[in-house]
Structure formats: structure tokens, C-alpha cells
Design a protein around this nucleic acid. Sequence first.
DNA 1: ATGGGTCGGGG
DNA 2: GTGTACGACCCAT
Length: 771
Amino acid sequence: MKEFIFDLKNDGGWKVKIYLKGEKDTILFDEFAPYFYLKTPNLGIKKEIETMPEVAGVEEVVKKEENKTIRVLKILTKSPGDVIKLRKDLAELGEPREADIPYAFRYLIDRNIKPMMWYDVKGSEFKDTKQEKHVLKACAFDIEVNNKRGPAVDPKKDEVLVIGYADDKKVRSFYWHEGKSNEKEIILDFLNEVKKKDPDVIIGYNSAGFDVPYLKKRSTVLGIDFDLSRDGSGIIIKPTMMGHRADFFGRLHLDAFDGVSFLSSIGAMNLPKNELEAVYKEMFGKEKIDINTAMLWKMWEEGGKQRETVIEYNKQDTIAAFEIGKEFLPLFIELSKITGIPIYEVSRMSTSQMIEWMLVREAFKQNILVPNTPSEEEVKHRMMRPIKGAYVKTPKEGLHEKIVVCDFRSLYPSLIITYNIDKTTLTNDCSNAFKSPAGHCFSKEKQGLLPKLLKELVETRAKIKKEMKKLKPGTREYKALHYRQWALKIIANSAYGYLGYARAKWYCREAAESVTAWGREYVQETAKKAEEEGFEVIYGDTDSIFIKLGEKTKEDAFKFIEKVNKNLPKGMELEFQGYYKRGLFVTKREGGAAKKKYALIREDGTVEIKGFELVRRDWSKIARETQEKVIKAVLEEGEPEKAVKIVKETIQALRNHEIKTEDLIIYTQVRRAVNKYEQQAPHVKAAKKLINVGFKVKAGSVLEYVIVKGRGSISDRAIPIQLLKENQEYDEEYYINNQVLPAAMKILRELGVKETNLKYKGTQEGLTKWF
DNA sequence: ATGGGTCGGGG
DNA sequence: GTGTACGACCCAT
């Protein structure tokens, strides 16, 4: 029967529990022995190890390490957990190896099978078969809870007010109706709705960090069994370094926030805040209602229209989470199929970790003994010695017109493949090797693990791109291929990062250094050629150069690109990236080095901004909005006059106290018990003020505060909005000097505008002193 | 300057 | 899971 692995977990002993989907859903229990290796000079200890109670058997096996053949002990254990114990107990007798590979991963690697790939499954035999499409049923949910006691909501005390549910056909709201239903019933109704739908995927937004753990704990208080699994095995919530993970067997818990974080981490999404409202707008261009969540309980208590607004807000959040989650699902499916890592794991993993698991798979195929993950000490040591990075040409500061940007297509992956750059090919013997500008040699004799992997990724992607050209954009087939090529691109582009990733098993400083050294050479060489051709090069970064056309035309630029390409090695290519009518370039003052900081405007008026964003939510809306307006005005006008006017008007409005409180709120989270802070930061003091009047503030609460006028430090004057009195005056000087001006000056400084020109009223004086 | 502390989403 | 992020920014020194 044609099936694919949708979920799997350790089921105790030597058993893997696998959720198979296909024509019908089945659960397969497959036998698999947990094991690890011991590299030891004394293979004779085999007999002694065999007598240990956790050991099920010991074999002497041959493995490859650093191109040599070695003999190691393969130790089979009675249960997966025994590996942890034994790797500690046996550390004195040798070096435990491959003892940190999760049981389910080990199973998938050793059986050479991947989740979401279709197989002809007979018993526990998996035979490759033609790929079919996945039909997965999805739904989303979102909860609102009573936050009357303050921002620290507690499932032991604060009731669930609304649960929103959405799938592709239906949207429902479960909420309190006095006299009609109670809290227990709305949770049961929600569970019932999920049971009826029997979804494969349950989507939420920060649902692993909040909604699922909250509902589970709240249900315990109410005496309900809150279970979303398909086999009654419950919900497993595990605290992690940051937030939680929440699993239920047989269904995928897709936290759309993980998807957003992932896209942010690879630079595919760049929002100041990854909050649902902003993400939804960015991805779908649609607005949704937003309420001040600190006031949610009040709106609820007021009833009538106010309560309806809360229900509508919840409904829209649920729909937004559903739509966002559905966008990520095909990407994660493809990443899972490529890497062989289950979807939930892949959705929470960095690209370096994905590369690592793919290398582990490749090493297994080649019978190579996998290197151990470095110790924390070694990680620190690696991080202390940064790798010399890419070439960044100090930009010619200020405004420029008529700019052509060209870049090398997949520069780093091309270099790794072309020069066989890898930990496993690094050699002192430079006779039959590529020698990098950094002075390291990489053997030509045998293809390295990473170059092999990368070549496959790049070639597969090229094939897919070719197939896509035959298809109509927008069709289902086209979309499926689009996600596959995207996933391949994401992984290929992170190969360089892996070489310099301090926690990597195949970390190789020399390799990483060589990639950037070759990269610098190609980019600098190209920039030089451009100047020889009479272009002015105003900026260059990693794999791109920005050239100013001046008296030349776009066609001249195309001819130049063609000329460069004639002299590049096979697999490398310079491409035209875009044309911009104007651009603002900045040299980051801090640290002295030139950094990625520019804003460009296209002919159609759209703006591309790099490096300016005020990314954190502890900047007020007024500061962020002013900065955005300033950038746009400068690029549109080509001079700072309009931007200066905008800033001055904002400052005047602040002085006149015309700015809404909403635009002044600074959001910061307290991450621990408030009395455990050493530094009395504004949000800590704000939290203390709340506690003093009886609000509960716990680790995890987000403080919303405004800096008001009065005595003492900024922290002393940070007032949580719950305690803000009507007509209480905000500290306009703080908002001018610590928020609006720093934000605006990040841009205007580059155009010679002085802070004093913006601050004081004399407009005429200011305008004459720009340059 | 540098290094240690803190943050992120949700209500 | 046989595992525990990470990069940006703050303040204090």
C-alpha cells in the first residue's frame, strides 16, 4: 500500500511508533535496536561491556574516519534512554560516538527513509515509489483569556473567555454565554469540533508557547482531559530554552510563529515585530482588527458591542493563523522531504542543523563515523575566533542616482562545489589540491561530504526550475515545484554558514575562511573591472556590486555583465539584480566597519530598505513611523528638506501633546520574577508599580508602559498603561531625544543634518546648515 | 570598546 | 527526541 510517514516517536524498548498516511491511516510499530559506538584503543573490553544490565549486545565493527579504516564497538542498548546513561558510564573507557542521535532520527537514517516521502509499505518494508500529492486536512485555533489581574495570566486562576476555530469551510467561536454555557463546555465544544474535523494539522500562532499549554493546564483545573492526539496518548509539553514545544501524536502541531521566526532567521521576512497583525499584513496585505490586549478583560466585562469586538478580534486572529500556517505547510513538507527530518522538528530547526542531519545521513551511507558535537568549552573557543567575513566595500555615502545592482548567483555554494571545500577534504598536501587565497588546500581526489550534498541540491534545483518553465504559474503543479526549489535554495544557501557554525560536528574554520577569501577575490576583481569600464562602483557586499550608471546606459551594464561571465569558471555566474532610480547609503559609525545599510527606490516608487529598521518592540510606534516616513521622503525628493519638516512636525506634535498614548507605548517582557532583576530597567520598575497595586506580574508578562513627566530616572517614570491616569502628561523630551530623534538621525545624519537643526524651532537656521 | 544581561510570540 | 537557539540590542564598566 502507498503510504508516507507522517509522525513517529519512541514507543519504549526497541519499538518505534509510526503514523502512516495514505489511502487510509495506520499506526505501525516497528522494531529497531537503539545503539551507539565506542571508539576505544582496547577492543577487549567488549566482554566486560556485554555484562552491563542496560546492554543488549556488543559488536566489533569497521568504520571510516578521516579517510582511514578503524575498528569500534557498536553497543546495542535495551532502550533508547539507556544510551544517555551508558555514554556517561563508558566515557572513561573510550570515546562514545553517535550517542546524541535521537532514536526516531536514527531509525529514519538507518532505514534510509524520509518523512512525507511516498513508499510502498508491506509490513515494515519501505520500498521507494512514485510520488503522489499529500492531502492534509488542517484547522486553526486561538484563545483569549481573562487578563483582569494584569498581564501575567495564569491558567490556575484566569478563565478562557473565547476559543476561535477555523478550517477551510467553517469558522466558529466558542465563548461564554451566561446561563447558556460555561468555560468547561466551551473547551469540550472545541475538542468536539476538532474530533469531528479529525485534522492532520492543527495551526496556531505561538500556540506551542501559549495556547496549547494554557488550555492543557486550564483543563486540568477544570477536570477535563485535554487531548489533541489521534491515539489518546495525550499532549506532551516540554519546556525549551525559549518557550515550549507541544506535541500530540498523529497530528502535526504547526505553530505559524515558528514559520515566521524561520523566515526571519533566513532573511526572507524582515519585520520590526513578528506579531500576528504585522505578519498577516505583510504576507497577505490584509488588515485585521487590533485591540489593546491590556484592556481585553474590560471590553469583555463591559459586554455588548465591546464584547463582540473581542470575539471578532479572536475570530480574525484564528483566520489569520490559519492562512499563515497554510502558507508554511508546503515549505516545511519540502524541507522535511529533503532533509529527512520530521516536520515539527524541521519547523523549529536552524538551517545549519538541517545541513548537519543531511551530512549525518550521508556519513551513514559512506560508513563514516560521525564526529561528536563540540563541548560548550570548544564552542566558546570557536566563537572567540571569528572567521574573516565577506568583502563589504565602504559605501560612497549619501544619495546616488541611476544605480544598477548585479550579483553572483549562489556565490558561496558555487565556490564550495567548484573548489571541493569541506572538513573532509582539507589537506596539508597541496600537490593535487585547490589552494584558496586564505592559504588552505582542499584535495581534488575525493569529493567532500558537503560539496557532494550541495551539488545534488543545486542540480536538483536546476532541474526543477527547468520543469517549472514548462508549467503555468499559479497551477498546483507549479506551486508544488516552487516550494521544492525554494526549500532547496534555503538549504544550499546555508552551507557556508554551516562550515563556520560553532556547534557543527563538521565545523571547519579553514574551509569557511577559504569560502569568504575566494568570494572576496571574485567580487573585488569584478568591481575593479567595472571601474576599468568607466562605471563608478558605489557599494559592494559579499556577492554583489552596486554600480552608478552616470552617463552610461542600462545596456552598457548588461554588456559588462556578459563580459564578466565569459571569464568565470563553470557553475559561476554574475546576474543583473535590479535598477534603482535613487539610493541612500550609510556607513555604520559604530565599530568603524562599513555595514549593510542602505535604502533604494525603484522606478515604480517601491522602496527597499536594508539595515535601518528599528527591529525591537521597545521602540514606540511614533519613533518607527517617523523613521519610515523620513526614509521615503528622502528617497522620493532626493533631498532632506521634506524629511526635516516631517521630523520637526513630529517633535512639535510631541511638544504640543497631540500624540496618542497608543503611539507612545513601549512593550517589554519581564522574563523572570521581578525581584530577581539586578538592573532596574524601565520595564522592571513598571512591573513593580503594577505589583504594588495588586496586579500579578510573572515571568512572561509583557509590560506596556509610557514614560511620563516627573522626578527621577527614566525607569522611575515608566508607568504601565494600566496605571496611567487620564490626562497624565508623557515626557515629550524623552520621546524626542530617546525615541524620535535617534530613529530619524540614523538617516538624516548621513545627509549632514545636525540634531540641533531638528530640535529647535528656528526653521530658517536649520535649513541653511545641512551640508 | 567590551562584555554581560536581556529579548523574542501569545493574553 | 539518544538535543537545547541565536542574533540584536541594552546598560554598566
